[in-house]
């Protein structure tokens, strides 16, 4: 049996550190380089991978991820390409989840998406614009195919909302560190610690913090109170700034090592 999210967080906990989760959209900067970069991330200390499903209207994403997914879409990245990317990185040993806005999953077919993701070796899905109230068929499909279902909590979530969200969540809870869109920030919001503490009172699930983490120092700080640290835009920026794919690989590896050191600090 391949490793699942619970194993990833249990291993990290046994090492007295937070888990490191890295994000990259499928098809970015192209299909093969994406798979290659994900392998690099894993080799350099990233514990689990979020494979992004590029969507035409990413309203929770800042400029960096928008640019990456637009490129991926122009390059012809379809849902099938995303699932194939998951298959390839899972075969290479990565623990992979998909991060997707809701419409592409609904269009693909909720049952079929869960089934094909399981078949590809994916272990979970993060749905940033799906709340549990709208997730009836999704909950059934993910249960049936043993796919972890990751919903988000935000600083504005009331305790009652957090209770609702975590009761539908499995794998880990995604805590959005700040009120805003994805993208590197110079400081991770102080509200994140409070949100994690409030969430912790409602669930025994691991809690990972995303939005705005871009340096090892920030990762270390978040790791003091969260079970996982999620890094997305910072990796993408390294790729966008690299002059070629080998430079991208080196730069991504360096950032992954810095982050991996951070979660162990």
């Amino acid at each position: 049996m391949s490793r699942r999210l619970a194993d990833v967080f249990a291993e990290a906990r046994s090492e007295n550190r937070a888990a490191l989760i890295g994000y990259l959209p499928a098809g970015f900067p192209d299909r093969d380089t994406c798979v290659d970069l994900i392998s690099t991330m894993v080799e350099s200390g990233v514990d689990a991978i979020e494979v992004g499903l590029p969507y035409s209207d990413p309203l929770m994403d800042g400029a960096v991820i928008q640019e990456a997914v637009e490129r991926a879409l122009i390059g012809g990245t379809t849902t099938d390409v995303v699932l194939d990317t998951v298959r390839r990185v899972a075969e290479a040993g990565a623990v992979a989840v998909v991060m997707s806005y809701w419409n592409p999953i609904e269009r693909y077919g909720v049952q079929q998406f869960a089934a094909n993701l399981a078949k590809a070796g994916g272990v979970g899905v993060i749905t940033p614009d799906l709340t549990p109230e709208e997730a009836g068929p999704w909950i059934a499909a993910t249960d049936e195919h043993s796919i972890d279902r990751i919903f988000l909590v935000a600083p504005s979530s009331t305790d009652a909302r957090i209770a609702t969200v975590v009761s539908s969540t499995s794998g880990f809870v995604y805590a959005a560190s700040t009120m805003g869109v994805t993208g590197a920030r110079s400081t991770v919001s102080t509200g994140a610690g409070d949100l994690v503490a409030r969430t912790r009172r409602q669930t025994a699930l691991p809690i990972a913090v995303g939005l705005g983490v871009s340096t090892g120092e920030q990762a270390a700080e978040v790791a003091t109170y969260a079970d996982g640290v999620i890094v997305g835009s910072a990796f993408i920026r390294r790729v966008l700034e690299a002059t070629d794919s080998s430079a991208a690989r080196e730069s991504v590896a360096a950032l992954a090592r810095e982050m991996a050191d951070g979660v162990r600090a």
């Binding site: 309203l59 809701w102 614009d129 709340t131 709208e134 988000l152 909590v153 504005s156 979530s157 805003g180």
Partner: peptide
């Protein structure tokens, strides 16, 4: 209809 938005907007 319904409400398909980031959780951050639910409170608002």
């Amino acid at each position: 209809g319904g409400r398909f938005v980031p959780e951050a907007l639910t409170a608002a």
